[in-house]
């Protein structure tokens, strides 16, 4: 292996800096230069910057394995999970990072996606609705479920609430109250689940309007940028068809 390869090239990482907690702070781009290491991800690079160059830089990572959905940001124009983005995938070594739009900004690359997702969960009532749920005798054998149905529910349950679909959504830019793919797919997940006793009419009350499934302009940025490759397009279409027949 050559010396040059060992030393690594110089990366230029530009970050939108802004701390709303500091009075008078103004948004600006700041560029950091650092030496690339083999196998370097943006998780490693940003921590390197914080520890060795600029301790004020704000960002969020938790699992750093693409599982928890904390670190979504706009990476060279595309919403994506930073932790599993290898710096080697950028041929010119220049990387521009912006916070995910559509969410309250905490500072720099850190956004309050938790607050947004909490509201989404409350809005679609993201839980099993069954009056008898609390009376189930836990000592008894569980209710059966078709293995295929369980697998299908899991397919939709894989959403990690990262917010990439919301950031990539054209409708959301125009309609601040639009539920977004994350909410629609969550609803579809419960509509599919035989344990949830809600009727189509009840689902209609939640998403049967322009802020719900009828607002979607099918631009499908959500489908393009979902890091978990959820079938968002199919599910939104399915839900729309289902809802169109309710009233």
């Amino acid at each position: 292996m050559s010396d040059q390869e060992e030393k690594g090239r110089t990366l230029k990482i530009s970050v939108l800096r802004f701390n709303p907690q500091v009075k008078g702070d103004m948004p600006r781009m700041q560029t950091y230069e650092l030496t690339e290491a083999p196998g370097m991800t943006l998780f490693i690079a940003l921590n390197d910057i914080r520890e060795n160059i600029d301790p004020t830089l704000q960002f969020d990572f938790v699992c750093r394995a693409g599982i928890c959905g904390s670190c979504a940001m706009v990476i060279n124009g595309k919403p994506s999970l930073a932790c599993r983005t290898l710096t080697s995938t950028f041929p010119d070594g220049e990387i521009k990072l912006l916070p995910l739009p559509g969410f309250e900004l905490i500072g720099d690359l850190s956004i309050n996606s938790g607050k947004f997702m909490q509201e989404m969960n409350e809005r679609v009532e993201s839980w099993i609705h069954d009056k008898n749920m609390n009376n189930v005798d836990l000592t008894r054998i569980e209710e059966r479920m078709d293995p295929d149905v369980a697998d299908e529910i899991y397919e939709l349950e894989r959403c990690v609430e990262c917010g990439c679909c919301v950031a990539a959504c054209g409708t959301k830019q125009m309609r601040p109250n639009f539920l977004g793919a994350v909410g629609l797919v969550r609803l579809a997940r419960y509509a599919l689940d035989p344990r949830d006793k809600r009727t189509d009419e009840e689902f209609y009350e939640i998403v049967g309007n322009d802020d719900g499934v009828f607002g979607c302009m099918t631009l499908l940025g959500c489908e393009d940028y979902c890091p978990k490759d959820l079938p968002l397009q199919t599910q939104i279409a399915y839900l729309r068809r289902k809802m169109a027949f309710v009233k």
Binding site: W127, I128, D130, M133, V136, L138, T139, R140, E142, E143, R144, M145, D146, P147, A150, D151, I153, Y154, E157, Y190, D193, R195, D196
Partner: peptide
């Protein structure tokens, strides 16, 4: 066993026997 059965009522899509 009770914990897992409770989670099944709360919506965990446990993989099932085929």
């Amino acid at each position: 066993p009770k914990a897992i059965r409770q989670l099944a009522t709360w919506g965990v899509p446990w993989s099932r026997v085929r």
